[in-house]
C-alpha cells in the first residue's frame, strides 16, 4: 500500500497544500490508465486553437460595434482571442503534461456506447421508447458489460418496465411510446 510510502515523506516547511495535492494525484494515479504522450497535448491545443480562430473569424462577421454600442460580435471576438492566446500557451507549456490518457482497445467500448445512444435517438420518434431502450440495455449489459444472458434479459425487462411506470404513470411525462 502506498500509505506507508507517502507518509514516510518528509513533512517539511514547504507548502502542505501542494504536497497534499501531489499525494492525492498519486493516489488517483494508480487507478488511471497510462498517460498519452505529447502528441495528445499538441492535438488538443491545436483543436482549441482552431476553435478560437474560427470563433474570431465568425465574430468579425457579426459586427464588432464600438465600446459605447457593443455589436453582437464584440464579446465573441474577445473570448475567441483569449482562447487563441491560451491555446498557444498550451502549445508551449503543455508538451510535458501527463494528464491525458492513452486510447486503448477499451476505448472501443465508449464508441459502441455512443452508437447505441444515436440509435436510440433516431428510433424513439418512430418506434416509441420501449423496444430501442430494451435493445440498448441488452447491448450494454451483454456486450459492453459481459453479463450473462439470463441477467441481461431480466435486468433489461425490469429496467424498461420501471421506466415505463416511472415516466408515463409516476411522473406523467409524455414520452413517445408504442404500447
Amino acid at each position: 500500500m502506498s500509505d506507508e510510502r507517502t507518509t514516510a515523506r518528509r513533512v517539511g516547511e514547504g507548502d502542505i497544500l501542494a504536497e497534499l495535492e501531489a499525494e492525492v494525484a498519486h493516489e488517483l494515479e494508480e487507478q488511471r490508465p497510462p498517460a498519452g504522450g505529447p502528441a495528445y497535448q499538441v492535438v488538443a491545443a491545436l483543436v482549441t486553437l482552431g476553435v478560437g480562430l474560427a470563433g474570431a473569424v465568425l465574430a468579425q462577421g457579426y459586427g464588432l460595434g464600438s465600446l459605447a454600442r457593443p455589436g453582437p460580435g464584440l464579446w465573441p471576438m474577445v473570448v475567441s482571442v483569449v482562447v487563441v492566446v491560451l491555446s498557444l500557451a498550451l502549445l508551449l507549456v503543455g508538451r510535458g503534461l501527463t494528464d491525458s490518457e492513452r486510447f486503448s482497445r477499451a476505448s472501443a467500448l465508449p464508441l459502441v456506447g455512443v452508437a447505441t445512444f444515436v440509435a436510440l435517438g433516431l428510433l424513439i420518434p418512430t418506434l416509441g421508447f420501449e423496444i430501442p431502450a430494451f435493445a440498448l440495455c441488452v447491448v450494454w449489459l451483454r456486450f459492453l458489460g459481459g453479463e450473462s444472458w439470463r441477467s441481461t434479459i431480466a435486468v433489461s425487462l425490469g429496467t424498461v418496465a420501471a421506466f415505463y411506470a416511472l415516466f408515463l404513470y409516476g411522473l406523467r411525462i409524455p414520452l413517445p411510446h408504442l404500447f
Binding site: S156, T159, L175
Partner: peptide
C-alpha cells in the same frame, strides 16, 4: 456490478433530456 447500473443511468439520461423540450 457497475455493468448493471450503466445502462440504467444511460437511459435516464437520454429519456430525461428528451422530456425537457420534447425534442429529439
Amino acid at each position: 456490478r457497475p455493468a448493471i447500473l450503466a445502462p440504467i443511468t444511460a437511459l435516464i439520461t437520454i429519456l430525461g433530456v428528451y422530456t425537457i423540450n420534447n425534442s429529439v
